[in-house]
Design a protein around this nucleic acid. Sequence first.
DNA 1: TGTTAGCACTCCCTGTATATGAGTGCTAAA
DNA 2: TTTAGCACTCATATACAGGGAGTGCTAACA
Lengths: 336, 336
Amino acid sequence: MLTERQKRILWAVIDDYIASAEPVGSRTVSKKKEVGVSAATIRNEMADLEEMGYLEQPYTSAGRIPSQKGYRFYVDHIVTPYFWQQGQSEELGLQDWGSLDSLEQIIRQTATLLSKQTNYMTITLGPTSFEERLRYLQVVPLSSRHAISIIITETGRVYQQQVEIPQHLTELQIQQIVQIVNERLQGQLLSPFLAQGVSQQLELGFDLDEWLTRLFHMENSEQVYTSGTTRILDQPEFQDINKMRALLDLLEETQTIMQLIQPTSDGIQVRIGKENVVASVSDCSIISASIMIHGEQVGTIGVLGPTRMNYRKVIGLIDYLSRDVSDKLHRWLRGL
Amino acid sequence: MLTERQKRILWAVIDDYIASAEPVGSRTVSKKKEVGVSAATIRNEMADLEEMGYLEQPYTSAGRIPSQKGYRFYVDHIVTPYFWQQGQSEELGLQDWGSLDSLEQIIRQTATLLSKQTNYMTITLGPTSFEERLRYLQVVPLSSRHAISIIITETGRVYQQQVEIPQHLTELQIQQIVQIVNERLQGQLLSPFLAQGVSQQLELGFDLDEWLTRLFHMENSEQVYTSGTTRILDQPEFQDINKMRALLDLLEETQTIMQLIQPTSDGIQVRIGKENVVASVSDCSIISASIMIHGEQVGTIGVLGPTRMNYRKVIGLIDYLSRDVSDKLHRWLRGL
DNA sequence: TGTTAGCACTCCCTGTATATGAGTGCTAAA
DNA sequence: TTTAGCACTCATATACAGGGAGTGCTAACA
């Protein structure tokens, strides 16, 4: 376990490194009044901290930089997230929600705000269709073999998809199916099992379950949206064109991105460096939180930046914004 | 006017510079057998070409690089675009269209192919809603004041938008409007004037024209899609992080992008360097062409790369692909 | 008159040597 | 246990020389 003084030194090193992006020397730390011992003492302590794995030295006789373990300790035991007051929305530049007209827009607006405030990259996941509830289904034939199926959910999102029409199915029968679905399944979760049983009720003589499942299974329903991509170029660690490139490549892989920012538990998730399994972000940190409505997760909002990230600010902001957005979405839904 | 020999020298310089990205010297040019004179002669000619503005010298005693005027002359009078045979689709790695299920996907697939083939960035514009024809309108109320309007076009695209419901309008009346629109306006162009006259037919006692116009005016209907963003990092001119950054920033400005690649005339458009008004692409070239169906423009496909671009290859490819895609879309629409 | 060989000159690039400075680890004294 | 002092390390900056690619000019040649 670390002594109180070691904690304070670790704290000072990390705070300084977050601000300067340069190795921190003993003299710099000794100048801060929270520590109050001489540079030589700090050198000894820093050597200990390095031995324990909380600090690293880029080369002999350079200052120290925090290791992944150091950041982890800092996040878990040292940092107190900045706390935003309820009334500070305007100060942050939050839009008047009245003018926004969909769940998606509200989430994106928040993402833009976040990236502007932090100068890191913001990633948001729109709602999964599985996590939403059916309001209205429509199937519009394009030809005798193809149709477009459209689903509107209770949150006002529209999913759309092209489907083939099974051989023996007439246009009239399709209308019947749509009618039955709209009458009986409204308000149900869009799970893969939603359509089970509808087929039998029609007594068509052939099985439609598989087709109906496809009607409701919207691919690409997970909308990944990123914002502030170029802002991250301000960070000195991304001056390296190859790192930059790896990151941009990553952005095109929707699946990976989703996996990266998806929180595995409630609350705020901080993943530091190699804790993110993907190699191209092994020196990045990702902080994310879920957006909840009625206890259900409707979206995720996350920030990606260098491990040398302003955790205090970002954790505080994400905490505040995720709750704020949940709140406002809730009110917006009731006001519809 | 340039002499035949000057043309050949300009040609050689540009071809070499396109391949090497480095200033081309007189010795290098004299080695090519198409020219066949000594280095000294070429030095004289190159000095003339520079005086006329076709070549530039980055610094005294360096080789020459083409100027914008040089590229323009090259494109207009020298280069013969590579001609792809009809049967070379497979060679290019063109997908079997059967598995693609929307106009959008077909265009995007082509964009990906283009950027893979050229190592430049590809930008496509999806169809404007104004240029499409109505197949089906639906309005789904979300509450007493809000609804979602959905338009499906003849090309199978779905546009969707949230609208407010005017005060005195009942749900029944909305259904009537939708019915009238679907009966009378099918196959019409989605122009802003589409809905004119519908209002009177209903004899509601108040004017709905403005609202109806909004129903059909889909914002963000111009889908901008980019592909191969990171590929452009292979080009030496984008090693500079600031240029890179300017380009990425540009990508987020949909309006500007549209303006940049929108062709002003039929056929293939080549815009070199400062001919693109936007500063961040003042050392890029953009080659674009429209995708036509039934004589109407349904999309645009363009390539953005350094002015030092392989014009021969790109012009040839865009020419081939834009016609090929138009063709295949046409067949695909008939087969629906 | 047009073409070419020869030559001095320019300017970039690279590698080497040197100086500077921030920071360390160790030792010994307080 | 803390601190001052000192020798040592290593990255970075600066200066400088040599090499090389390429030019412009001149004079000779066909």
